[in-house]
Amino acid sequence: METSPNGMTTLSGVMEVLKERGVDHELRLLENGQLEDQDSGRVYNPQGMKIIRSYRFEGDSNPSDSAVLYLLENADGFIGYIINAYGAYDDYEGDLFDNLIRNLPVEEREF
Protein backbone atom coordinates (compact mmCIF):
# COMPACT_ATOMS: atom_id res chain seq x y z
CA MET A 1 0.00 0.00 0.00
CA GLU A 2 1.24 3.45 -0.84
CA THR A 3 1.69 5.51 2.28
CA SER A 4 2.64 9.14 2.24
CA PRO A 5 1.65 12.31 4.08
CA ASN A 6 -0.44 13.59 1.16
CA GLY A 7 -3.53 11.48 1.81
CA MET A 8 -2.61 8.34 -0.11
CA THR A 9 -3.22 5.85 2.68
CA THR A 10 -6.86 5.07 1.88
CA LEU A 11 -8.65 4.13 -1.31
CA SER A 12 -10.61 7.39 -1.29
CA GLY A 13 -7.38 9.32 -0.62
CA VAL A 14 -5.65 7.73 -3.61
CA MET A 15 -8.67 8.38 -5.83
CA GLU A 16 -8.70 12.04 -4.76
CA VAL A 17 -4.98 12.48 -5.51
CA LEU A 18 -5.40 10.75 -8.88
CA LYS A 19 -8.28 13.09 -9.71
CA GLU A 20 -6.10 16.10 -8.78
CA ARG A 21 -3.46 14.73 -11.18
CA GLY A 22 -5.99 14.45 -14.01
CA VAL A 23 -6.75 10.75 -13.75
CA ASP A 24 -10.46 10.34 -13.24
CA HIS A 25 -11.30 7.40 -15.50
CA GLU A 26 -12.64 4.37 -13.66
CA LEU A 27 -12.54 1.27 -15.82
CA ARG A 28 -14.81 -1.74 -15.51
CA LEU A 29 -13.95 -5.17 -16.88
CA LEU A 30 -16.62 -6.42 -19.25
CA GLU A 31 -17.58 -10.08 -19.69
CA ASN A 32 -15.84 -10.12 -23.09
CA GLY A 33 -12.52 -9.12 -21.48
CA GLN A 34 -12.53 -5.50 -22.64
CA LEU A 35 -12.32 -2.49 -20.33
CA GLU A 36 -14.99 0.20 -20.33
CA ASP A 37 -14.48 3.78 -19.11
CA GLN A 38 -17.40 4.27 -16.72
CA ASP A 39 -17.81 7.96 -17.62
CA SER A 40 -17.43 8.06 -21.38
CA GLY A 41 -18.49 4.50 -22.23
CA ARG A 42 -15.39 4.15 -24.41
CA VAL A 43 -14.16 0.56 -24.60
CA TYR A 44 -10.49 -0.44 -24.55
CA ASN A 45 -8.80 -3.71 -25.41
CA PRO A 46 -6.45 -4.89 -22.68
CA GLN A 47 -3.79 -5.59 -25.31
CA GLY A 48 -1.46 -2.63 -25.22
CA MET A 49 -2.39 -1.78 -21.64
CA LYS A 50 0.11 -2.03 -18.82
CA ILE A 51 -0.02 -1.64 -15.06
CA ILE A 52 1.95 1.45 -14.08
CA ARG A 53 1.11 1.51 -10.38
CA SER A 54 -0.88 -0.53 -7.89
CA TYR A 55 -2.23 0.31 -4.47
CA ARG A 56 -3.38 -2.35 -2.00
CA PHE A 57 -5.70 -1.58 0.90
CA GLU A 58 -6.52 -3.80 3.84
CA GLY A 59 -9.36 -3.02 6.19
CA ASP A 60 -8.36 -2.82 9.84
CA SER A 61 -11.49 -4.47 11.16
CA ASN A 62 -13.50 -5.67 8.18
CA PRO A 63 -12.22 -7.98 5.41
CA SER A 64 -14.75 -6.45 3.03
CA ASP A 65 -12.60 -3.28 3.09
CA SER A 66 -9.75 -5.08 1.27
CA ALA A 67 -9.18 -3.84 -2.27
CA VAL A 68 -6.57 -3.19 -4.93
CA LEU A 69 -6.50 -0.22 -7.30
CA TYR A 70 -4.51 -0.76 -10.50
CA LEU A 71 -3.45 2.27 -12.51
CA LEU A 72 -3.43 1.31 -16.20
CA GLU A 73 -1.97 3.06 -19.23
CA ASN A 74 -2.40 2.24 -22.92
CA ALA A 75 -0.12 2.94 -25.87
CA ASP A 76 -1.97 6.21 -26.61
CA GLY A 77 -1.13 7.57 -23.15
CA PHE A 78 -4.65 7.12 -21.76
CA ILE A 79 -4.50 6.43 -18.01
CA GLY A 80 -7.36 4.94 -16.03
CA TYR A 81 -7.83 2.78 -12.99
CA ILE A 82 -9.63 -0.40 -12.10
CA ILE A 83 -10.55 -1.39 -8.56
CA ASN A 84 -11.25 -4.86 -7.27
CA ALA A 85 -11.95 -6.21 -3.82
CA TYR A 86 -10.09 -9.40 -3.11
CA GLY A 87 -10.72 -12.63 -1.30
CA ALA A 88 -14.31 -13.61 -0.64
CA TYR A 89 -15.48 -10.13 -1.66
CA ASP A 90 -14.01 -10.19 -5.19
CA ASP A 91 -16.02 -7.96 -7.56
CA TYR A 92 -15.73 -10.34 -10.52
CA GLU A 93 -16.87 -13.93 -10.83
CA GLY A 94 -14.55 -16.61 -12.12
CA ASP A 95 -11.02 -16.05 -13.35
CA LEU A 96 -11.69 -13.15 -15.74
CA PHE A 97 -10.20 -10.41 -13.58
CA ASP A 98 -7.29 -12.52 -12.33
CA ASN A 99 -6.41 -13.49 -15.91
CA LEU A 100 -6.53 -9.84 -16.98
CA ILE A 101 -4.13 -8.75 -14.24
CA ARG A 102 -1.78 -11.71 -14.78
CA ASN A 103 -1.52 -10.99 -18.50
CA LEU A 104 -0.89 -7.24 -18.27
CA PRO A 105 2.76 -6.19 -18.28
CA VAL A 106 3.85 -4.33 -15.18
CA GLU A 107 5.92 -1.16 -15.39
CA GLU A 108 5.67 0.14 -11.83
CA ARG A 109 6.68 3.77 -11.71
CA GLU A 110 6.05 6.85 -9.63
CA PHE A 111 2.88 8.64 -10.52
Rank of each mutant, 00 (worst) to 15 (best):
M1V: 15
E2Y: 08
T3A: 14
S4A: 12
S4M: 05
N6D: 13
G7V: 12
G7N: 14
T9S: 13
T9F: 00
T9I: 10
T10N: 02
L11P: 00
S12K: 06
G13F: 00
M15V: 08
V17Y: 03
L18H: 06
K19I: 03
K19N: 13
K19V: 07
E20T: 10
R21H: 06
G22K: 08
L27D: 11
L27M: 15
L27P: 10
L29Y: 04
L29I: 09
L30W: 01
L30A: 06
E31C: 01
N32L: 01
N32R: 01
Q34N: 15
Q34D: 13
Q34W: 04
D37L: 12
Q38V: 10
Q38I: 07
D39R: 10
D39F: 05
S40G: 11
G41F: 02
G41A: 07
R42S: 14
R42L: 13
V43M: 10
Y44W: 08
N45P: 06
N45W: 00
P46E: 10
P46M: 06
Q47M: 02
Q47N: 04
G48T: 07
K50L: 07
I52Q: 07
R53G: 14
R53D: 15
Y55K: 12
R56L: 11
F57C: 00
F57R: 05
E58F: 02
E58S: 10
G59V: 09
D60R: 07
D60Q: 10
S61W: 10
P63G: 03
P63C: 02
P63A: 02
D65R: 06
D65K: 06
S66T: 08
A67Q: 13
V68W: 02
V68K: 13
V68G: 04
L69I: 15
L71M: 14
L72K: 07
E73D: 01
E73H: 00
A75N: 12
D76L: 06
D76V: 05
G77F: 00
G77K: 01
F78L: 03
F78K: 02
F78G: 04
I79K: 06
Y81L: 07
Y81M: 09
I82A: 00
I83C: 13
I83R: 15
N84A: 12
A85H: 11
Y86V: 04
G87F: 02
D91E: 06
D91F: 05
D91S: 09
Y92L: 01
E93P: 00
G94N: 03
G94L: 03
L96R: 03
L96W: 00
N99W: 01
L100I: 08
L100W: 00
R102T: 10
N103A: 12
N103M: 09
L104E: 05
L104R: 07
P105Y: 04
P105C: 05
P105D: 11
V106K: 15
E108K: 15
E108C: 12
R109M: 09
F111K: 10
